[in-house]
Amino acid sequence: MKYTAFAATMQAVWFSHDEGLSWNRLLTPTGGIYNEARCWAVATHPQRPGELLAGTDQGLYRWTQASGRFEHLPSPMDSLQILQVEQDPHDPNFIVCGTRPGEIFISADNGGSWTRSRLNAGTECWFINTSRVTSIHFDPRDRDTIWITIEIDGVFRSTDRGETWERLVEGLRDCDTHDVVFIDRDGERRLLCSTEAGVHRSEDNGRTWSHVPTPAAPWPYVRSLKKRADGEVIFASVGDKPSGETSMLLASRDDGMTWTQLPVPEPINSTIWSIATHPSDPSLIFVATIFGQIFRSQDGGDTWEKMQRELGEIRMIAWAPDANGSIQT
């Protein structure tokens, strides 16, 4: 399977066409995006192979393999920082973007038009001045439900496709929330949420949360949570602090009840900020630290190797199979 890996960095989007060994950006004159645009989010969709959405400080962009370049999608987010981009798993035309300031913008027509959601996230935050959206998730069980995490304002859920939102923070030790995974098994649901104060679990669809001890981790700062594509393992990245100076990757094989450390080669230079999986191959996983290191596993997370090339500040990493045809960059 030929695939492309993508890294959202503070110097635009980087592409790897050789399984993470080498990375390049598109050239500014032909790439369709200023190659030092700050990029926080990249999103792919299984129904749109060869296509990538990128959230930046210059607006939302779409890259296509066929054109080999980015196209700017005009939106009310042009003056904002687009930190998260997600497409409905069932309908790639339905796009949800999260920004700083913490707002949600939704398009139902593949980016042609946008509405600003009535999200009452914290307007101001003492520690980081302005709240920001840290993750967006479409509920795997209910097509009308969308979940978001906001730094520093907790977990929000919409049950009407993003029109209105409910804040769900009871029991969270800290409202600096980063990510959510859904465990739906045998008719039962469990949610896990990563926060600055560790992993939290909910058994009542987010209404209440309880802290999950993770003795394998010496620090409480949990950044990214990701289920392996086959659902058998949940990964969690833990850092000594935000940005941080070191990190570890944990795995749980019992739906988040216990965690073990994975053998990611050291030294790890900062918090592992992003974990990339794809439904087409559960064995292939990329993780990236915020300060540019990239690690790859080709056996579902049992073993890891560090990619030689390091990038600048990486905010998100992703990979997706190529569409049929050659790559243009």
Binding site: P76, L80, P101, E103, W114, T123, T130
Partner: peptide, 24 residues
Amino acid sequence: MTTFLYKPHVMNARKEVTTPDIII
């Protein structure tokens, strides 16, 4: 939809400055 992104340098009584970005 049009907004104004207000980016004030806000001083409090202790002369500390924060820089929130506020959508108006």
